[in-house]
């Protein structure tokens, strides 16, 4: 079988997260399960339209279906957003290296997400929650543009109840009376948290500008380069380290990433450009 050929998945559920973000629950047509490691990505095909990379947002422990949270930004996602439950899409993967969860054991895990960047982090969060006693604590700092841009609104009430998981949220701007949590960019949440930096790891995912300033802030907080993990994003196309599109320095994001430590990226000029 060709490595470029997708498997068919049926869309079994669509959740409208925000006006331009939807979560699609997908079920493989020809097999019982689909396994991936949290942080790995898949190539999703809308037949006849195009293929694009996304990171699953569901738990890797759940293998009968997979969730993918997708923002409508381009031609392919525009088309995908018009699709209905029951329609078929193609999936290749999983590709790349995921989060090194085993190395987080015994540590404090700081998760910083921006906008739809919470999607891969939700998968990570599910993974960590599964064995929450393995970690000293988990802190989630999440920022969105406005309160209505927050994804997974329905999950936060459950998450607030979990012992060992602290959650802080911010929005860039809001209407008066609409929001009683922090207003400001996500990095300002980092000033409010209590964390034992030396015994922590930080995981960041969001738009490039947010990743850049969060990384700078974490360095400021004395995180070492090998304690910071970033989910990088380029136009991964083949997913196999061949077609060349997602190269960053000598790395192919699809094959060597998409999760990189800052140690790996710090010497690459302009990694967030």
């Amino acid at each position: 079988m060709s490595i470029y050929k997708p498997q068919n998945f049926k869309i079994i559920k669509i959740i409208e997260e925000t006006p331009n973000i939807k979560t699609f629950t997908l079920k493989p047509l020809d097999s019982d399960k689909f396994s991936f490691k949290t942080g790995q990505f898949i190539e999703l095909t809308v037949y006849g339209v195009g293929e694009a990379p996304f990171t699953p947002s569901s738990s890797p422990y759940k293998t009968d279906t997979m969730d993918v949270t997708i923002m409508r930004v381009g031609r392919m996602t525009e088309f995908l957003h018009s699709m209905k439950e029951g329609e078929i899409v193609g999936i290749r993967g999983p590709y790349g290296k995921g989060y090194p969860v085993e190395s987080f054991v015994g540590k404090e895990v700081l998760i910083v997400g921006g906008g739809v960047g919470l999607a891969p982090l939700r998968s990570l969060l599910f993974t960590l929650i599964e064995k929450i006693s393995d970690f000293k604590k988990i802190v989630l700092c999440y920022g969105a543009r406005t309160p209505s841009d927050i994804v997974y609104k329905y999950l936060f009430p459950e998450w607030y109840k979990i012992k060992g998981l602290e959650i802080l949220r911010s929005v860039d701007r809001c209407q008066p009376g609409e929001w009683d949590e922090t207003v400001g960019v996500v990095t300002c949440l980092l000033d409010k948290i209590k964390i034992d930096v030396e015994n922590s790891v930080a995981v960041v995912c969001g738009p490039p500008i947010m990743m850049k300033f969060t990384t700078l802030k974490l360095i400021d907080m004395k995180f070492k380069p090998n304690q910071i993990y970033l989910s990088m994003e380029r136009n991964m196309s083949c997913g196999l380290g061949k077609c060349g599109h997602c190269q960053i320095g000598s790395y192919f994001i699809c094959k060597d990433g998409p999760v990189f430590s800052w140690e790996q990226l710090k010497d690459i000029p302009e990694p967030f450009e």
């Binding site: 095909t45 809308v46 037949y47 083949c238 061949k242």
Partner: peptide, 17 residues
Amino acid sequence: YCFLIREASKDYKDQHR
């Protein structure tokens, strides 16, 4: 060695790229 993948399937039964 760079290449571009072009998706041109009619539907999911007739995959073509």
